[in-house]
Design a protein around this nucleic acid. Structure first.
Lengths: 195, 195
DNA sequence: TCTATCACTTGATGTATGTTAAGAAATGGA
DNA sequence: TCCATTTCTTAACATACATCAAGTGATAGA
């Protein structure tokens, strides 16, 4: 289990001993997915939290007309899960899918409950994750309420330059809440602009 | 402190003794605001969490062009706070304002830190609040990404019928992400529809 | 290498929503 | 009670973005 990003992540984000990190990693499953594989599907119960070691995930949902809308990309060192399904024990509205061959560290509900009960500082750690999540969600809403597609696109590039280079524009468009055609035009306009 | 909604809320949502509830309420401040008063302003640090006993709050931000966008309404038995500012200790991007004469129970950061350290079950309680918040935010994003203004309006009515009756349509429009004129047209169309 | 699929672009046109302007109806102080 | 302000509606016009359709490259299996 040496050399995993999850380890570095934990040691630098949790005030816990080497020993505790070892326990934590020992109980935690590593799993690999192929490009296109689903980690969670709509209507399933999401009972795991995923930490991306390598690769890239997306969380998306399908609306009534069958269109896909991406809520989140999760590249290396990000977490992915449907917190709603996980916490409230409800069937998920979302899919979580690997966009590249992806290696994840998996913390399931039993594992997490266990840590919460035994490891001092784990609740704080999870609290941090939740607040990061809330921050991201709030910023997304602010952006959707107040910014044009062009502005949202520019924000995206700046915020997730790595993701930008790794996924097709169709998916960026889906994240931004516009059609691929519109994104193409936004990009054309930007290219023709001074600056 | 008898007869406060916050008390009922706590007893029915926390597995704590009468004694603990008493302590909790004893340390907690009650404050009243007039219609129009600000509990938090942009660029201030939000160091308190508000529980609405009576009245109605809104959380909103102002975009670059000076337009207001409402993130959340908080009627009786709801919590309001800028979790981002509170947790990350950053100046807030938001305003929190009373839309009616409003009585709130205030938990400040010292109070909360204290409870986290001393009261078993408080972390779980806060965790629940955070997950409720995440759920609401996610649903909002889903709605903004995939639904028309009309659908969002119908959702709003169903989800917050009480708020609907207590705030001007301008604010509903601001919450929905459209102009008051557009909301007016949406309502007209709905009225002319066979249901 | 060939072919099917996917990714991206472009153009023509449609639609939802924004903007500007005006006025009517409701509300709240003085 | 009256006046000022806010709220809501309506209309004409503008704009951002969607839809539909087509075509060009790029990519990846067979």
């Amino acid at each position: 289990m040496k050399g995993f990003s999850f380890k570095s992540y934990l040691t630098s984000n949790l005030t816990i001993s080497e020993e505790e990190v070892a326990t934590l990693l020992h109980q935690c499953t590593i799993k690999e997915f192929n490009k296109g594989d689903f980690l969670v599907r709509e209507n399933e119960f999401c009972k795991q939290v995923y930490f991306v070691e390598e690769g890239l995930l997306r969380q998306f949902f399908m609306d009534e007309s069958g269109k896909e809308h991406i809520l989140q990309f999760a590249p290396e060192n990000w977490f992915a899960a449907d917190r709603e399904s996980f916490y409230f024990n409800q069937p998920s509205k979302y899919f979580i899918q690997a966009l590249e061959p992806t290696k994840v560290a998996i913390m399931d509900d039993v594992y997490i409950k266990n840590l919460e009960a035994t490891m001092h500082g784990f609740l704080d750690f999870n609290n941090r994750l939740l607040h990061n999540h809330i921050r991201a969600l709030q910023n997304r809403i602010v952006s959707l309420l107040s910014e044009t597609a062009e502005k949202r696109y520019l924000n995206f590039i700046q915020l997730y330059p790595d993701v930008m280079l790794r996924v097709p524009l169709t998916m960026i468009a889906s994240y931004l809440g516009i059609t691929p055609e519109s994104l193409s035009r936004v990009r054309k306009d930007l290219a023709n602009k001074p600056h």
